[in-house]
Amino acid sequence: VTTYKLVINGKTLKGETTTKAVDAETSEKAFKQYANDNGVDGVWTYDDATKTFTVTEMV
């Protein structure tokens, strides 16, 4: 189990959250659901070296 981080650069929501998951794909699903639940829709990137997802909304 690995800890993954999500950085949110939204128009109205900014911040970070973490989750523990067995792999990046599992954490990505959880993070995308979290973003969707909070009305964040944007461009996703992933940095495997830091286990960090970033979602950026276009303004």
Rank of each mutant, 00 (worst) to 15 (best):
V1G: 11
V1R: 10
V1C: 15
V1I: 12
T2R: 10
T2A: 10
T2M: 10
T2H: 14
T3I: 13
T3P: 04
Y4S: 04
Y4V: 04
Y4F: 10
Y4C: 04
Y4A: 04
K5H: 12
K5F: 14
K5Y: 15
K5W: 12
K5C: 09
K5N: 06
L6V: 03
L6D: 03
L6N: 02
L6E: 03
L6Y: 02
L6W: 02
L6G: 02
L6M: 04
V7D: 02
V7L: 09
V7P: 01
V7T: 04
V7Q: 05
V7C: 08
I8R: 00
I8H: 02
N9H: 11
N9M: 13
N9S: 07
G10Q: 05
G10P: 02
G10H: 08
G10E: 02
G10R: 03
K11W: 09
K11R: 13
K11A: 11
K11M: 13
K11F: 12
T12C: 15
T12N: 12
T12W: 13
L13A: 08
K14V: 10
K14I: 09
K14N: 09
K14W: 10
K14E: 05
G15C: 15
G15E: 12
G15I: 15
E16V: 14
E16L: 11
E16G: 09
E16Y: 13
E16F: 14
E16H: 10
T17D: 03
T17E: 05
T17Q: 09
T17I: 15
T18I: 10
T18P: 02
T18W: 15
T18Q: 09
T18F: 14
T18D: 06
T18Y: 15
T18L: 10
T19S: 07
T19N: 11
K20M: 14
K20D: 14
K20N: 13
K20P: 05
K20H: 10
K20Q: 14
K20E: 14
A21N: 05
A21M: 04
V22H: 11
V22F: 12
V22D: 06
V22S: 11
V22N: 09
D23S: 09
D23I: 02
D23M: 03
D23P: 01
A24N: 07
A24M: 14
A24K: 15
A24Q: 13
A24F: 14
E25S: 11
E25P: 09
E25A: 14
E25G: 09
E25R: 12
E25F: 11
E25N: 09
E25Q: 13
T26W: 06
T26Y: 06
T26G: 06
T26Q: 12
T26S: 11
T26L: 06
S27K: 01
S27D: 01
S27T: 05
S27W: 04
S27C: 13
S27N: 01
E28A: 11
E28N: 04
E28C: 15
E28H: 11
K29D: 05
K29C: 06
K29W: 07
K29N: 07
K29F: 07
K29P: 01
K29H: 08
A30H: 14
F31G: 00
F31Y: 02
F31L: 05
F31V: 02
F31D: 01
K32Y: 05
K32F: 05
K32S: 03
K32E: 03
K32G: 02
K32W: 06
Q33N: 07
Q33H: 06
Y34F: 12
Y34A: 02
Y34Q: 02
Y34E: 01
A35F: 03
A35E: 01
A35D: 01
A35V: 08
A35W: 02
A35P: 01
A35S: 04
N36P: 01
N36E: 13
N36M: 15
N36L: 15
N36D: 11
D37V: 09
D37S: 09
D37C: 11
D37I: 10
D37F: 08
N38C: 13
N38Y: 13
N38S: 08
N38M: 15
N38D: 02
N38F: 14
N38Q: 13
N38W: 14
N38P: 01
N38L: 15
G39L: 06
G39R: 05
G39V: 03
G39P: 01
G39W: 04
V40A: 03
V40E: 01
V40S: 02
V40F: 10
D41P: 03
D41Y: 14
D41H: 13
D41M: 12
D41Q: 13
D41R: 12
D41E: 13
G42R: 00
G42K: 00
G42F: 03
G42P: 00
G42D: 01
G42S: 01
G42Q: 00
V43K: 08
V43H: 09
V43C: 09
V43E: 10
W44G: 00
W44P: 00
W44C: 01
T45C: 09
T45E: 10
Y46H: 00
Y46K: 00
Y46G: 01
Y46D: 01
D47S: 05
D47T: 04
D47N: 10
D47V: 04
D48A: 13
D48R: 06
D48I: 07
D48C: 05
D48K: 08
D48T: 07
D48P: 14
D48G: 06
A49N: 10
A49K: 11
A49S: 11
A49E: 12
A49H: 09
A49G: 08
T50N: 08
T50G: 03
T50A: 06
T50C: 03
K51W: 05
K51Q: 09
T52L: 03
T52Y: 01
T52S: 03
T52Q: 04
F53A: 01
F53R: 00
F53S: 01
F53Y: 08
F53L: 02
F53I: 02
T54L: 05
T54C: 05
T54S: 05
T54W: 08
T54F: 10
T54E: 05
V55I: 10
V55Y: 02
V55F: 03
V55H: 00
V55A: 02
T56C: 06
T56M: 06
T56P: 00
T56W: 08
E57Y: 07
E57N: 05
E57T: 07
E57A: 06
M58C: 13
M58T: 12
M58I: 14
M58P: 10
M58H: 13
V59G: 14
V59C: 13
V59L: 13
V59E: 14
V59F: 12
